[in-house]
């Protein structure tokens, strides 16, 4: 469960990115966050993963108060969250398999079991045949899928994606969105920020619309 209560975020330069944000997302729910660029979508997602801290207000993620979370506890919060980035943040010095392996190494997984999990995650995003490839040889869509595989390999309870379809053509974007839906169907809480409202025309899921740092009702 994710809960925002009177959350404000002001950056050091005085810009108010988020103003008086309050909402609750239940476990297993799938929610879209929309808004123009600069509306505060990314900032909102970063607050959940404690990449940014709120200026005031309370944020609770899985029962933990993010505003008061110690620095040393942040890694353990993030191990419960899968992050998908628009710019992928893939490491180009290692192959596809090793990229997906990274979260499991970090959380101290037994190697044999970790390999099985990596294969399962790569299979889910359709990259199993490319496990030995270098990321540099992958297309934009493939890189995005690699990023998703890395985000889900450690089976987080929350999956957060910031503009996951940003640079992809329509068909590809649809594929990616279907992938997120399938994670939602197995019980993962999914949050997707997107400015692409075309994709959301007949979605059954909740939409949180941000406008200039405020939630539009």
């Amino acid at each position: 469960m994710i809960n925002f209560n009177n959350v404000y975020k002001r950056f050091p330069d005085g810009f108010d990115a988020l103003k008086n944000i309050a909402f609750t997302i239940e476990s297993g729910e799938m929610v879209y966050i929309t808004g123009h660029s600069g509306a505060g979508k990314s900032t909102l997602l970063k607050l959940i993963a404690a990449i940014e801290r709120p200026t005031s207000g309370n944020i609770t993620v899985n029962g933990q108060n993010i505003s008061k979370l110690k620095k040393s506890a942040v890694p353990f919060l993030r191990r419960n969250i899968g992050l998908v980035f628009q710019d992928h943040k893939i490491l180009f010095d290692r192959n596809v398999f090793d990229n997906v392996m990274l979260p499991l190494q970090i959380s101290n997984f037994n190697t044999a079991m970790a390999a099985r999990r990596v294969h399962a995650a790569l299979d889910k995003v359709g990259l199993l045949k490319k496990e030995k490839s270098r990321p540099i040889t992958l297309s934009g869509g493939e890189r995005q899928r690699l990023c998703i595989a890395r985000a889900v390999v450690h089976r987080p309870s929350i999956l957060i994606a910031d503009e996951p379809t940003g640079n992809l053509d329509v068909d590809y974007a649809k594929d990616i969105m279907d992938m997120f839906t399938s994670f939602h169907q197995v019980g993962v809480t999914v949050l997707i920020a997107t400015h692409d409202t075309n994709l959301l025309q007949d979605t059954p899921h909740r939409i949180l619309a941000l406008h200039q740092g405020q939630l539009a009702i």
């Binding site: 990449i51 040393s72 353990f76 943040k89 990274l102 970090i106």
Partner: peptide
């Protein structure tokens, strides 16, 4: 730099 940043994002402790 990149590797450290990504590792931190996916929950690596400082020790790791």
């Amino acid at each position: 730099r990149e590797e450290i940043e990504v590792s931190k994002l996916i929950g690596a402790t400082d020790g790791f």
